[in-house]
Design a protein around this nucleic acid. Structure first.
Lengths: 186, 186
DNA sequence: TTAATTACGGACTATTCGGTAACAAATATG
DNA sequence: CATATTTGTTACCGAATAGTCCGTAATTAA
């Protein structure tokens, strides 16, 4: 019955995600989303209800794509140490000036909006569990659950801190020294 | 010659800082700053020129008060390990839901505004040097400059990550386990 | 073919945005 | 006292804000 939509909803969501990623929640106007997606605001409101819905959809897409890619790196082939090092190093090498949308949402919206806060915590939890799983392949951590949980949480903190430092424009050599320290502390 | 001002400019700046701290740059309207300070916008514009000037003044005040307090903790009495542990633990115990204004500015504005980016980098640099100085009291790090620099950068990343996790509402026991891992890795 | 349903685009709303102009009150210096 | 200067206050500006309404086009099921 319905008239088919004349645009690619997935591509639109990608554009929405990229816009919130760059400008943050408050820094993103509906006009900006219209420009980024090429859609009229009416189509955006029909798809997502309101601006908050657009943001939550962007967070979900980020979790399913960018966050999932990071987790994939942690569960890929090679030794656990190599996978961890590859994850952290790749963040520096292809430095994204927008930072990490999950981290941005954590500082930006998590404390002001329950929905965003819950979404951020869910993403953080997924990432932490991936770190825990990778640590499970290392002798020192396989046996001791508490040790592994603490290290996994610390790796999440380092991950967030690294991405914020990248966004803040810290020089790459300092960041590589930082990663070297993380690897040494495993 | 001039008529004396009828308000406390320092108190006004504190209120401005608190408002940006809670709501971020874009989330803070001039109206909100008027309400927080009790001043009319004309007085605000006379003091700071424009909204960006108000934000940069808030960052400076944060550096001079909150950031300086953290650095003081790192240079207080007691062993270096105790000082480091006290700093991280205190962040968890008196969890500030607004997070860290330096960290917030880093994800919020550093990539979009040169002035904010430079201010954030300067604050990060001060904090990193304080970590380096504290590490200088530990035998393992006193000798090796590269080792110390890497660890100091890693501690900054952990500091940022911890504050973001606190703001995101992570449970305190997990955060204490995180700090235990940091201390173990020294 | 008709009816139901959805997509679309433009116009419109009321409010808020950051920022400015104008002016009277207050004060210290000449 | 007079004058220069800064204060606080009100009013105002055009632009942008999030969100809605409504008429029209397109499509499929009956």
């Amino acid at each position: 019955m319905p008239r088919p939509r004349g645009f690619d909803a997935d591509a639109a969501l990608d554009a929405i995600k990229a816009t919130f990623w760059t400008y943050g929640y408050e820094g993103t106007s509906i006009q900006r989303l219209e420009d980024a997606t090429g859609l009229k605001k009416q189509s955006l409101y029909r798809l997502y209800g309101d601006k908050r819905g657009m943001y939550l959809a962007a967070l979900k897409a980020y979790d399913e794509h960018e966050n999932a890619a990071a987790i994939d790196t942690l569960t890929a082939e090679g030794s656990a140490r190599d996978r961890l090092k590859r994850l952290f190093t790749s963040l520096i090498d292809d430095a994204d000036p927008r930072g990490c949308l999950m981290c941005n949402a954590g500082t930006d919206q998590a404390a002001l909006d329950d929905g965003s806060g819950a979404a951020v915590r869910a993403m953080l939890s997924r990432l932490r569990q991936a770190f825990e799983a990778a640590l499970g392949a290392l002798d020192d951590y396989r046996q001791d659950d508490r040790l592994r949980a603490g290290k996994a949480a610390a790796l999440v903190a380092s991950y967030i801190g690294l991405r914020v430092l990248i966004k803040a424009g810290e020089p790459a050599d300092r960041l590589h020294a930082l990663v070297a320290d993380i690897m040494k502390s495993l």
